[in-house]
């Protein structure tokens, strides 16, 4: 059943969405470079945007735009505009997140001198060790 043609092709948008999502998450997990993490996060978010847009699509439907003369022909099939609108908001949120993330990276780079996760962790561990020592002393 799983290898049925319809199951794969009929849900193609979902498969692509899942692949994109996994790619994004994988980047966040596997890359130590903070900027790459942000990029991964972006891909992850974008996959969701794609997902939303694809579910708004009605087969054979056209863009949901009022004609110039405002005479709506009931026989014309429109795609669902609502998910698209929602995604506009989500995109704004995504951009804000990216911008904030990048701004933080700039500050991190100033403070730590690196943007590699591992190196930052090492620096933090050193700091923690110092703190514990000062506590013991």
């Amino acid at each position: 059943m799983i290898f049925e043609h319809n199951f794969i092709m009929g849900h193609l948008n979902y498969w692509l969405f899942i692949m994109l999502m996994m790619t994004g998450l994988f980047i966040v997990i596997s890359r130590g470079n903070l900027i790459k993490k942000i990029v991964g996060l972006n891909i992850f978010q974008t996959s969701v945007f794609m997902f939303y847009i694809s579910i708004g699509k009605v087969a054979g439907g056209t863009a949901p735009i009022f004609p110039m003369d405002m005479n709506i022909n009931p026989s014309i099939l429109y795609s669902n505009p609502l998910p698209h609108v929602l995604i506009l908001t989500a995109i704004v949120v995504g951009i804000a997140t990216t911008a904030l993330g990048l701004a933080l990276i700039v500050r991190i780079r100033e403070a730590y001198g690196t943007i590699e996760d591992e190196e930052i962790s090492l620096i933090e561990a050193d700091e923690q060790k110092l703190e514990t020592q000062s506590q013991l002393a």
């Binding site: 966040v28 997990i29 130590g32 993490k37 561990a125 923690q128």
Partner: peptide, 20 residues
């Protein structure tokens, strides 16, 4: 304790893995 697994400071990759 502070250095044990329960309380360690993880990198965010590990955190995401947990979520997965």
């Amino acid at each position: 304790g502070p250095t044990a697994n329960f309380a360690r400071v993880f990198t965010n990759g590990v955190m995401i893995l947990w979520i997965a």
